[in-house]
Each structure stands twice: as structure tokens, then as C-alpha cells.
């Protein structure tokens, strides 16, 4: 079997057939193309149903409801890219928020609170990483256990109480706007952060190594990639940004309860997977995740405008997560079938 020649011929054929029509087909059958189309369709739909949807002020303000989850999705890309998972992120937020609340009650100022929040997140991430990488226990099992420990700490000490006293200046991060505009600070912060993550993922050696590990951790290890160190860094990074999100969220709602950010791990993972990052690792890019952030964010905003209940949104998120994994499988199968048919005809 001369696979090589066959394949060379095949790719030449593909090259020759690249007309405009094929280019369009190629674009829309790419995952980001699909997402963009859905996003456009959604905007058209909602703007026809309600006049309040396509309103600059509303569109800006709506981002308050999903920017924190969006920030959470960025380091999660790295984790999932390597074939790992962290379902304890939301619990890390609770732990960080608890630590900040406690510190605030001791009179720590805004700067100190931010440091404490982020440091707590980093330590929690390192705790996960220790068990996952050093002791080789599967990530899903470790983070399932640690999520109940992290949230358990704040529950054990706070019980049904809450911290509500924060310095006045602390409220800027979650509630403030860029001075002189109606652009939320959180939105700008996320976009800058996303640019940073995009740079790391697509232009640096760290990014290359992430893809290599995700596609074959063994081959990466044999090629001199320090797989363990990178996975460890990913989990710490995830903890750090869970701490950052804790700052934003606590600042926005001004209180800390044990059930803060409940279920956000699901939302962060959904954003990443819907954005086209393969759950088994090695595939995906930032553009897809950005599209999925705004797609889900504005979908919920639109559904809220037309008075759909929060529970319907939870169901929608669940379905989207499953669909995000299911659709590529189905698309792949169709492609394979077509290829086989073409071969048989030849």
C-alpha cells in the first residue's frame, strides 16, 4: 500500500479544488466558523424579538454577568489542553473570597486583600497539583475531593453567616467603569488578559509544549519537554486566576458566603469545550473560546430579557456542554464516511 503517494495525490486534489465555494465550506465547517454563525444568528434573533438587546449600554453592562466566568476559562484552556481537568476552581474562588473576607474583618486594606485572595488561590492550585502530578492521582478524583475541602473550609467556619464588610475602594474591580466611559473595568481586564493568554498559547514555547503534551504526553516527554512541570504550572496558574476571579466577584457582590460561585466550574469548562478545545487535549485556540464566551454570555442575557427562568439557562448550559463534545464527533464521522465512499468509488 503506497499510503504516502495516495495521500500526496489526495492533498494535491484538495489544493486544486479550493474555489471560493470550498473556502466558504471550509470556514463554516471549522468550529470557530460554526460558533461565529451561531453568534450572528443569535444576535439577529434577539434583536428582532426585543428592542433592548442591541443597545450599546445594555450590551456593555451585560458583560458584568459573564466576565468573571470568562476570566476563569482562560487558564482552564491550558489545563484542558493538556488533557487534565480541574473541577475545584469554583471552590477555590470560595476559599479565596473567604480568606479576603476574613482579612477584611481584620482591617486589611484593598491592596492587601488582593494579594491575599490571589495567594490563597495559588496555594489551592498548588495543593491540587501536588496530588495530581507528584502522587499521580487522576485530576478528576483529586479536584472532586479538594473542591469539597476548599468550600468546606469556608462552610465550616462561616456556617450560615457571611462576610459583608469590605473597604470602599475594593468595589472598583467588580463594579467600576473605565473613567469617562461606560465600558466596565472587568471587560477591559478580560480582553487584555485574553490577549496575554493568546500570546502565550500561540507564540511561545510554553504554548507549543502545551499542544505537544495534549496530543501525546509520552512523545513530549521523550522529546525533552518537562511535562510534569508544565502541568504543575497550569494548576497553579488556574488557582491564581481563581483568586483573581474571587477578587472581581467579591468586589462586585460585596459579600462572601460559602455558596459563592457555586457551579462555576461547569460554566468555565463549558466555555472552553464549546470554544473547540478538545476535552482529551491538544486541540483548540483562543479565538474559539472568545466566541463561546460572548455566545453564551449574550445568549443568557437575551434569554433573561425575554424572561426565561434561570433554571432553563442551567439546562441550556448543560446541553451546550454535551453538544460541544457531541457535534465534532458527529462531524468527524460524516467526514470519515464521505472519505470512505469516495475511496470506494475510486
Amino acid at each position: 500500500m503506497d499510503t504516502n503517494k495516495t495521500l500526496a495525490n489526495e492533498s494535491r486534489l484538495v489544493e486544486e479544488n479550493k474555489g471560493l465555494k470550498n473556502k466558504i465550506i471550509a470556514l463554516v465547517t471549522r468550529w470557530e466558523g460554526v460558533l461565529a454563525l451561531i453568534l450572528i444568528a443569535m444576535v439577529i434573533l434577539f434583536s428582532n424579538i426585543t428592542p433592548y438587546f442591541l443597545d450599546y449600554f445594555n450590551l456593555m453592562n451585560a458583560t458584568f454577568t459573564f466576565m468573571e466566568k470568562a476570566v476563569l476559562a482562560l487558564p482552564m484552556i491550558f489545563i484542558i489542553m493538556c488533557g487534565d481537568i480541574d473541577i475545584s476552581v469554583a471552590a477555590i474562588i470560595a476559599l479565596s473570597s473567604f480568606a479576603m473576607g476574613f482579612a477584611s474583618s481584620m482591617g486589611v486594606d484593598t491592596g492587601g486583600l488582593i494579594i491575599i485572595g490571589i495567594l490563597t488561590g495559588a496555594l489551592a492550585g498548588a495543593f491540587n497539583a501536588l496530588f495530581i502530578i507528584r502522587f499521580r492521582i487522576p485530576a478528576i478524583a483529586v479536584t472532586l475531593a479538594s473542591l469539597s475541602m476548599f468550600r468546606g473550609v469556608s462552610q465550616a467556619i462561616l456556617g450560615d453567616q457571611a462576610y459583608t464588610q469590605y473597604p470602599a475602594s475594593f468595589s472598583y474591580f467588580g463594579q467600576g467603569y473605565i473613567p469617562g466611559t461606560i465600558i466596565p473595568f472587568e471587560l477591559v481586564f478580560f480582553l487584555i488578559l485574553a490577549a496575554g493568554f493568546a500570546y502565550v498559547l500561540h507564540f511561545t514555547t510554553y504554548g507549543r509544549k502545551l499542544y505537544a503534551i495534549g496530543n501525546s504526553a509520552t512523545a513530549a516527554k521523550f522529546s525533552g519537554v518537562d511535562v510534569d512541570r508544565i502541568r504543575f504550572t497550569n494548576f497553579v496558574l488556574n488557582g491564581v486566576f481563581a483568586g483573581v476571579v474571587a477578587v472581581l466577584l467579591t468586589s462586585r457582590i460585596g459579600s462572601t458566603r460559602p455558596n459563592i460561585a457555586m457551579g462555576w466550574e461547569l460554566e468555565a469548562i463549558t466555555l472552553v469545550v464549546l470554544g473547540g478545545v478538545s476535552i482529551s487535549g491538544g486541540k483548540g485556540n483562543i479565538v474559539g473560546v472568545l466566541l463561546s464566551v460572548f455566545l453564551i454570555g449574550y445568549l443568557k442575557f437575551g434569554m433573561g430579557l425575554i424572561n426565561m427562568s434561570a433554571k432553563i439557562m442551567i439546562i441550556t448550559t448543560g446541553f451546550l456542554l454535551i453538544l460541544a463534545v457531541l457535534l465534532p464527533v458527529i462531524m468527524d464521522n460524516v467526514k470519515k464516511q464521505n472519505k470512505l465512499k469516495a475511496q470506494r468509488r475510486a
Binding site: 469548562i269 442551567i314 448543560g318 454535551i322
Partner: peptide, 9 residues
């Protein structure tokens, strides 16, 4: 992923 999704569904 399947059960994380159906958990909320």
C-alpha cells in the same frame, strides 16, 4: 463531560 452536563440538565 456527559455527566457534568446532565448533572445540571
Amino acid at each position: 463531560i456527559a455527566t457534568l452536563g446532565t448533572m445540571s440538565i
